[in-house]
Simulated scan of single mutants.
Amino acid sequence: MDSIEELEKKLTQKGEVSIVGCGRLGVRVAFDLLEVHRGGPKKVYLFDNAKIDKNDIIHRKLGGKIGEYKVKFVERFFGERVEGVVENINENNLHLLSGDVIIICIAGGDTIPTTRAIIEHAKKHGMKTIGTNGVFGIEENIKICDAKYAKGPAQFLNLKEEGHIVVGTGKFIKDFEPITPYTLDEMTKKMVIECLKILNKIE
């Protein structure tokens, strides 16, 4: 039987993850994923061209400075395990994405075309994808499902095949409910767990 020391050596970091969007949700996902001990990803790539402003409370609570690029703050915090790319992913720069898992945390405006393009790109290159299905709601149960069967914002992706995992409340902006830190924390937890399940299957 292996000793404790030998078992510990087998619990290593595996794979790489791209996180698209480093806002209120994306920065939580990045921190929680990188905090995983005896596992988690070897490398995280973060994509976002926004800077921290006074309303980015979670970034500031974690130590980010106003005016600092969000992705460069996370890179500064974690060092070589993170590569912060100061670009928003769109249909023209999908080639920048890499790794085993892509976690899509983009928000604001119509994100459907970009999300769909990322999913199609990932499928062609053998990468798994995880995204959102509504962040609004005060006391909502956070649900995980395949986007093909989603009820909520993700249904508008109109995906014909299974494989894109979505996490969220299923609520829309038109429901006129706020986005709470509690909802984002719970979504983060479930997104990170889904990502770890994928990474743990890597040989």
Rank of each mutant, 00 (worst) to 15 (best):
Lys65Ala: 05
Phe31Lys: 10
Thr183Gln: 00
Ile202Lys: 07
Val71Gln: 06
Asp100Tyr: 13
Val27Gln: 15
Gly84Pro: 03
Asn133Gln: 09
Glu203Arg: 05
Glu80Thr: 14
Phe77Met: 15
Ile103Gly: 03
Asn90Tyr: 09
Ile198Asp: 10
Glu87Trp: 13
Gly163Phe: 09
Gln155Trp: 00
Arg24Ile: 04
Val17Pro: 01
Glu139Phe: 09
Val135Ala: 11
Thr115Asn: 14
Gly23Ala: 11
Val166Pro: 06
Leu199Cys: 08
Gly126Cys: 03
Thr132Lys: 06
Arg76Ser: 00
Ile118Arg: 05
Arg38Cys: 00
Asp56Val: 01
Ile142Arg: 09
Gly15Ser: 02
Ala122Asp: 03
Thr188Glu: 05
Asp100His: 13
Leu34Gly: 00
Arg81Trp: 14
Thr183Gly: 03
Lys72Arg: 12
Gly23Leu: 11
Glu177Ile: 04
Gly137Arg: 01
Ser18Val: 02
Lys42Glu: 13
Val27Pro: 10
Val20Lys: 04
Phe172Ile: 05
Met127Thr: 09
Thr180His: 08
Ile52Gly: 08
Lys70Cys: 02
His95Arg: 13
Phe156Glu: 14
Asp185Val: 12
Gly21Phe: 03
Arg38Tyr: 08
Lys128Trp: 10
Ile57Lys: 15
Lys124Phe: 02
Ile19Tyr: 06
Lys160Ile: 00
Gly26Met: 12
Leu157Ile: 10
Pro181Ile: 11
